Amino acid sequence: MKKYKITVYDEKTGEKHTIEIEMSEEELEELAKKLAEKHNVKVRIEKV
């Protein structure tokens, strides 16, 4: 498992949230996809 920083940005409201999380790359990609689809936000992932 690796550490990642996830930034979620909502273009409508301008809200931006960043968290650090430790998980596998596959789980992370699935999480990012679900966030983007369900909440209509942009998701950026960076390795820490």
Score class of each variant (00 low, 15 high):
M1Q: 09
M1A: 13
M1Y: 09
K2C: 15
K2D: 15
K2E: 15
K3M: 12
K3P: 03
Y4D: 00
Y4S: 00
Y4E: 00
K5E: 03
K5F: 04
K5M: 07
I6W: 01
I6E: 00
I6M: 02
T7H: 12
T7K: 02
T7R: 01
T7F: 08
T7M: 05
T7S: 04
V8I: 14
Y9H: 07
Y9A: 02
Y9P: 00
D10P: 00
E11D: 06
E11N: 10
E11W: 09
E11P: 10
E11Y: 14
E11F: 13
K12G: 11
K12S: 12
K12P: 03
K12R: 11
T13S: 09
T13C: 09
G14C: 07
G14A: 03
G14I: 01
G14T: 03
E15C: 08
K16Q: 13
H17L: 09
H17I: 12
H17S: 10
H17K: 08
T18W: 05
T18F: 05
T18M: 10
T18V: 13
T18Q: 05
T18L: 05
T18D: 03
E20A: 05
E20P: 01
I21C: 13
I21S: 03
I21R: 06
I21T: 06
E22T: 09
E22M: 12
E22D: 08
M23H: 02
M23V: 10
M23R: 01
M23N: 02
S24M: 13
S24Q: 09
E25G: 04
E25D: 13
E27P: 01
E27K: 11
E29D: 11
E29P: 05
E29W: 13
E29F: 12
E29C: 14
E29T: 10
E30C: 05
E30K: 13
E30D: 11
L31Q: 01
L31E: 01
A32T: 10
A32S: 07
A32C: 13
K33S: 08
K33R: 11
K34S: 09
K34W: 09
L35I: 05
L35H: 01
A36V: 07
A36E: 09
A36H: 09
A36N: 08
E37H: 06
E37A: 06
E37D: 07
K38I: 12
K38S: 08
K38Q: 10
K38W: 08
H39V: 13
H39F: 06
H39Y: 07
N40Q: 04
N40H: 09
N40F: 10
N40L: 04
K42L: 13
K42H: 09
K42V: 15
V43E: 01
R44I: 15
R44Y: 14
I45Y: 04
E46R: 01
E46P: 00
K47S: 14
K47C: 15
K47F: 15
K47R: 07
K47N: 12
V48M: 07
V48W: 03
